[in-house]
Nucleic acid binder design. Structure first.
Lengths: 238, 238
DNA sequence: CGACGCATTGATTGGATTCAACTAAGGTGG
DNA sequence: CCACCTTAGTTGAATCCAATCAATGCGTCG
């Protein structure tokens, strides 16, 4: 099994030849590290590279002028930050390192070349961006129509699957290295209310979140609370 | 000026030759109508065609099992419903006709062919889907971090620009043919609260919404209430 | 005309925020 | 090494925004 998280992720849906996998490995030679709390990309940037998370957690976010912050997506190893930059030029949001991160800087021409040369890579990358988009839609439902308890439950279900996809979680739970404040910024809640809601989820025996660890006590109950339907992650073999 | 809304929309950012425009016109020969309230596509469908709105309003939506509904996007003339279907196969949400609609059914191979033949069309279509994605992100901020008044103001700002892009609105306002219930499903609010909030926005002289018409009384004030920054629509000429 | 869909308004409830206090854990420096 | 400080988590009380429940008005359409 490749230890290139991009390959691990794409193999969840596409079959890739060793040659194709090697080509993807070759893209990730220019690696930088970003310390926790620093921006990987800021709103308004016009990056020359496409950025891919290799290690750690990052968050796509937008800030309002009065300080409110909304996280738009969590980026795990294997996720691209800004595959769209070659077309859109300017970032309309920022990417922040939630933990210390290793980030690959990929030349946009190298992406174009891989897409031209390997149709299956093209298809797999496209699949990845479409799943990202589906996750965005799911987050709109989350913030728009679910209450705090359902929201956090849904977030944990999603992150658990995505962490498993890249080999970073087992069945019992996963590592969630962020504060309750950050969790609130993702769920559209205050840190205080996240705290109370986590307590409630713990007391009803669904999930226990402590010390950066999510411990899924009762997966079935958690899915039920969340109303979780994984179809939007499009994981069935085509 | 073309009366093909797809061309009108794409011309906001791409320069397209008459030949390219004619080719796009040629894609839209298979037209069906859908009555208000009917689904254009349902969750779980695996459509054989890509659908494009030619006339009317449609809504991308998800329903929860207990009846709560969240609208994920409004689709205007020129917008694709499901450009992603060739890759993802199964719809993870539905598309509903908010008004009577005219919808073009485009063969997926015809899209592929246009993309292969005309790189600029490819680029323009990609730009369109990336803007759709940016709009999704903006809606997450809306439902996650803005209150009812800010949310509706932001929605009106966005729709006003998008309507102008396809020649369906002037400076003073635009036609919004939907109930307050539907507006609530988009903003993550109840119809009752939408009603009260519209009243408030009217009383402070920002917008007047009545009889399916949005009348922007004070654009500057509306943008200020919304905290509206149009950068996410990526409309500057590249 | 009566039925229905939609808009409007009032009264009440409830979920989430705000403000505030306190604890626990970790890191730093005198 | 421990006093001190910072950061994160926890809990209580008060407040507020939006949901809920409910009633009414109004126009349209069969």
């Amino acid at each position: 099994m490749s230890n290139n998280p991009l390959v691990r992720k794409l193999l969840n849906l596409a079959r890739l030849t060793p040659e194709e996998q090697a080509h993807l490995d070759g893209l990730l030679d220019n690696v930088h590290s970003t310390a926790r709390g620093r921006n990987i990309i800021a709103e308004g940037d016009r990056p020359d590279f496409v950025h891919l998370i290799l290690k750690g957690w990052a968050a796509r976010y937008k800030d309002l002028s009065d300080g409110r912050r909304q996280i738009l997506a969590f980026l795990l190893p294997g996720d691209f930050c800004d595959l769209h930059v070659p077309i859109l030029k300017e970032m309309d949001h920022g990417i922040n390192a939630v933990t210390d991160c290793l980030v690959a800087y990929v030349r946009t021409e190298a992406i174009d070349e891989a897409i031209d040369r390997y149709p299956r890579i093209a298809r797999a990358l496209w699949w990845g961006t479409l799943v990202d988009e589906a996750v965005l839609r799911s987050w709109i439902v989350n913030t728009g129509r679910r209450d705090a308890r359902e929201r956090l439950a849904h977030l944990f279900c999603e992150l658990h699957i995505r962490m498993r996809m890249v080999g970073l979680a087992g069945d019992g739970g996963f590592n969630l290295p962020m504060t309750q404040e950050t969790l609130g910024d993702a769920a559209g809640l205050t840190a205080v209310h996240v705290n109370r809601t986590l307590k409630q989820l713990r007391e009803e025996g669904a999930v226990e979140v402590s010390k950066q660890e999510v411990n899924v006590l009762d997966p079935e109950r958690l899915r039920k609370i969340a109303g979780f339907n994984p179809n939007y992650l499009h994981l069935e073999p085509r």
